[in-house]
């Protein structure tokens, strides 16, 4: 496999916690500009895979490369975030005591050291960017609202908006529609498809209806490695996948 023209390249990655192999010889390649959905039963290693990519967990063995040449196993979370990998958590994690606008302001691309932050004045370009993102994530009328007062679905959108504000090359989105209404789910699918036009995206999701809506290539993980890969129809027709999901 060639690493060039890939945004994310995992080869032979394994990691175990206290003897439990959460990821087992996992190989996964994402092309630049691609959106990929990852499915799999509980404990398949979906979240652990994201932990490895974002620097939270170090793999025991295997290669993890970003953008063809950057070895992600050598960097910590903040460095990886600065390189252009944004991550949305399973449980929406926003700064609840700040307004929607301030949440985005803290996420906006820019210097990440203390003194510039101390003497920071918001420029018109930044205000413009925040306005744009508020429009994209459909929270334009909530800009002054505290994030704590948002609904669950709105928090998920705000978190996606914070990822956009970082201007990453690759977005890792963990269960974006968990706990959303059907209408919100559809809206989120549209939102992610918008974003995928100029970003590479990995979406982890259980909701098959939502995955179908995205209409992208699907990877099914099981016990820490790839079980099946292809279109949703192909994957859901795969006997092993059916077996894993329904039990023997």
């Amino acid at each position: 496999m060639s690493k060039s023209n890939t945004i994310l390249y995992l080869d032979g990655v394994s990691v175990s916690f206290d003897g439990f192999r959460a990821i087992n010889n996992l190989s996964l390649v994402l092309d630049k500009g691609e959106m990929r959905a990852i499915i799999g039963p509980n404990g398949a290693g979906k979240t652990t895979m994201m932990d490895i990519v974002t620097g939270k967990t170090r793999p025991d063995e295997g290669e993890v490369f970003f953008d063809g040449q950057v070895d992600l196993t050598r960097h910590d979370e903040a460095e990886i975030a600065m390189m252009g990998i944004g991550r949305k958590f399973q449980k929406p994690t926003v700064f609840e005591s700040h307004s929607v606008e301030d949440n985005l302001m803290l996420a906006l691309k820019g210097p990440r050291s203390i003194f510039p932050a101390l003497f920071h004045h918001r420029s018109t370009a930044e205000t413009q960017r925040i306005d744009d993102i508020l429009g994209i994530i459909r929270l334009g009328d909530k800009r002054g609202e505290l994030a704590a007062n948002l609904s669950h679905g709105q928090k998920q959108w705000l978190e996606i908006g914070m990822l956009l504000a970082q201007d990453p090359k690759l977005l890792l989105v963990d269960e974006p529609v968990a706990g959303m209404t059907d209408a919100e789910t559809e809206e989120t699918a549209r939102l992610l498809k918008d974003i995928a036009r100029d970003h590479s995206v990995i979406v982890v999701e259980h909701d098959m209806h939502f995955v179908r809506e995205l209409g992208v290539k699907v990877t099914c993980l099981h016990e820490g490695s790839v079980l099946s890969e292809g279109t949703l129809d192909f994957v859901s027709a795969d006997e092993r996948v059916v077996e894993v999901y329904l039990g023997r």
């Binding site: 974002t54 903040a78 975030a81 944004g86 926003v94 700040h98 803290l106």
Partner: peptide
Amino acid sequence: MAVRDAESRTRFLGW
């Protein structure tokens, strides 16, 4: 305050 409320979020934003 963001670090107080959600430290890992700030890390994944690059701070």
